[in-house]
Design a protein around this nucleic acid. Structure first.
Length: 261
DNA sequence: ATGGTAGGTCTCCTA
């Protein structure tokens, strides 16, 4: 397998942060970068900026103001797939295929609102249904030559949050969500690339904008993930979380992550 | 236990 560096980043408005994406591209030089929460329609994407840095290929599903996924690639994209969840046409998935048959799914899973109860909170109900559809419709059995990345909005393990005890009833870390994620993982025989290399240790990819000082309080969560199909496991070389990006000027609340195969 | 910030369709919705 030819070396492949793949990154994922919830950018929280790609138009506002095009400069930060360029900065990250120069720093990490991924072959493919999957962005979430681009927050604009396809026609408004600053694709020319990315082309200048070698990202000649792009696949996107945009939406005005909300959501939006964009996959940028230095390698030729030969096939694009857009999947809708929960009967909605919101922009939360785009899948691509490269010339060597590797597939990359870029996902933005709903955040789920504040109250972790499907009866009281329709946003949480949406998140639970969305995760169930990933399990039952998108990846209903073991996959091959596939990488699934994005903002999953779920911190699966106790070490994926600053306090397991404090967050056990907080949306993103409840048992209903972590159970669903582990069912998806089990059914598809997925590898969580980060935990493959770091089985334990508290490291995060998201820090709230609301903290006085994100670095001092360090109340983060690992919400962003790069999962690989079982057959790619022997090719995994390195996984990085670019925490320093949280301290860049006008940052996203998420930082980029990258896996190298 | 509370409230805090940020982006876009901008005094209201989302995260």
């Amino acid at each position: 397998m030819k070396s492949l560096a793949i990154a994922s980043w919830n950018i929280n408005s790609v138009r506002l942060r095009v400069g930060l994406v360029e900065k990250f591209m120069k720093l990490a030089n991924p072959d493919i970068i999957c962005l979430q929460e681009t927050k604009c329609i396809d026609e408004q994407l600053p694709l020319e900026n990315f082309k200048k840095l070698g990202y000649k290929f792009a696949a996107s599903k945009g939406e005005k103001s909300y959501n939006g996924v964009l996959t940028l690639s230095k390698r030729k994209i030969v096939h694009v797939e857009k999947f809708n969840f929960c009967g909605k046409d919101d922009a939360r998935h785009i899948g691509i295929e490269l010339e060597d048959g590797i597939k990359v799914h870029n996902l933005y899973i709903p955040a789920g609102g504040d109250v972790p109860d499907t009866k009281l909170n329709s946003k949480f109900e949406h998140k639970v249904s969305f995760l169930s559809e990933i399990r039952d419709k998108l990846f209903k059995s073991e996959t091959k030559k596939t990488i699934m990345v994005g903002d999953f909005n779920v911190a699966p393990l106790p070490d994926d949050v600053w306090s397991h005890k404090a967050l056990i009833n907080v949306v993103s870390h409840t048992k209903i969500e972590t159970d669903l994620l582990s069912e998806i993982k089990k059914r598809g025989k997925w590898i969580d690339t980060f935990r493959e290399i770091n089985p334990s240790g508290k490291l995060y990819s998201w820090w709230s904008y609301r903290a006085r000082d994100w670095k001092v309080s360090n109340r983060g969560r690992r919400l962003d993930h790069i999962w690989a199909s079982q057959d790619l496991k022997p090719n995994l070389r390195k996984v990085q979380i670019f925490s320093e990006a949280r301290g860049w000027e006008r940052p996203s609340d998420h930082v980029p992550i990258q896996a190298i195969f």
